[in-house]
Design a protein around this nucleic acid. Structure first.
Ligand SMILES: [Mn+2]
Ligand SMILES: [Mn+2]
Ligand SMILES: [Mn+2]
Ligand SMILES: [Mn+2]
Lengths: 217, 217
DNA sequence: ATAAAGTTTTAGTTTTACCTAAACTTTTAA
DNA sequence: TTAAAAGTTTAGGTAAAACTAAAACTTTAT
């Protein structure tokens, strides 16, 4: 159906679309996919020919319904495979992403649905990211950040904006994971760094860190 | 490390090597991989540059130690994934091959070893083909064919030479699978077709069929 | 309003893995 | 033993997906 490269572009555009209101820029795609802007322009034209994106020269792209639907199937596969790796194969949450990047391109409708069944239809992946169902419906995502809590407030860790291996390893070191209860003890006026109680333990988190942690109750 | 295409060539040469004593011919590779002979010649030169095969113009190729080692890792992955699909995801044995052709190229040493552990170190895949261990050691393969049994002899089905979907579906229809006991009742002098008792049921098998079924006791 | 800065597109290359057609080598069989 | 057939390699080309360099366009800042 689609090439691996086309799928990577669709997924990238899907993710970038969530952070902007207008079209997704050539440069943001090239940055995310580690390619040059010129390569993006070329591919984007091909995707437009295939009616997967709307493309206005110089003003970026956005996914068509068909493009979005396909992007969601890739995201679904990526996150299901991450569940499999963590829940069944003893991978750590900070080492599944690169493998899932490969596995998400395996083409077999039956494989995805059987994997989903095998994992008992998980709603969130090991990083708290929602898994689209077979029809492309996304469970709600928690979008309140730890940095938005005031002194004395508390929340339960529901997901992470940055899921780089570096950040995930850092969180693991502080014993923060999905479900960890975090109470804000103090917010430093100077740099907005936070002193917090995470599962009884007192820790200190920079603004950069608190901005990348989603909380709920 | 290696491209998907290079891996497919290595695996093809590995499989073809088992049926011939001299070098593996360009045409046999091109037939197996559904490419043209000219493409094979090109790739084979590249593999020779990388010291994965020995290549003598006009006399075919054979794997070097390094080429064989890598071919074995791909075969290992292919067969482990087939086990996973059949044993854990409810795939039929005749629908796993194409998916395993994709999965065998996923690059992650940890994934292979964890999958092997998860499956409890299987020795044979769903078609009775032996799974190389992490060091590249292959369990013994049964190589006596059903067509070699004489009237009155019996054997237990241990594997299949042809594992095309068509043949596997045919076997399933006759209720023949790994472990099925088969007793030869009669061999037709005319075309060497066999009447046999397979798990109490009387069935008739062509020479083509009996040539593709391996038996042991 | 215009120039500078930044971004995007176009034009021209490269690499990989294929292809066809022609040339060459080996095998076969008259 | 030799000529035809069969198999293989070489030569030259294409398509996909990347790249660089340079031109074109948009945005921003005087
Ligand atoms: Mn991921
Ligand atoms: Mn994830
Ligand atoms: Mn197979
Ligand atoms: Mn098999």
């Amino acid at each position: 159906m689609f090439t691996q490269s086309e799928e990577n572009y669709l997924k990238a555009i899907f993710h970038l679309q969530q952070d902007v209101d207008g079209g997704v820029s050539t440069s943001s795609i090239s940055e995310l996919l580690q390619t040059k802007a010129a390569s993006v322009t070329e591919m984007v034209k091909k995707l437009a020919d295939k009616k997967l994106v709307h493309y206005q020269k110089y003003y970026g792209v956005h996914l068509t319904e068909s493009g979005r639907a396909h992007a969601l199937t890739i995201v679904r596969k990526h996150r299901l495979w991450e569940c499999f790796l963590v829940d069944r194969l003893n991978f750590n949450w900070d080492e599944v992403h690169e493998v899932a990047e490969q596995l998400e391109h395996i083409k077999s409708a039956k494989l995805v649905e059987e994997l989903d069944k095998f994992l008992e239809h998980p709603l969130y992946d090991p990083h708290g990211d929602p898994i689209p169902d077979a029809d492309g419906n996304l469970p709600k995502r928690f979008k309140k950040k730890l940095s938005e809590l005031k002194t004395g407030e508390q929340g339960v860790c529901k997901g992470f904006k940055d899921d780089s291996s570096a950040f995930l390893k850092f969180l693991a070191k502080q014993d923060i994971g999905l479900g960890t209860a975090i109470k804000v003890l103090n917010i430093e006026a100077f740099d907005e760094s936070v002193t917090a109680l995470a599962d009884q333990k007192e820790i200190s988190l920079s603004k950069t860190a608190t901005n990348n942690i989603y909380v709920g109750n």
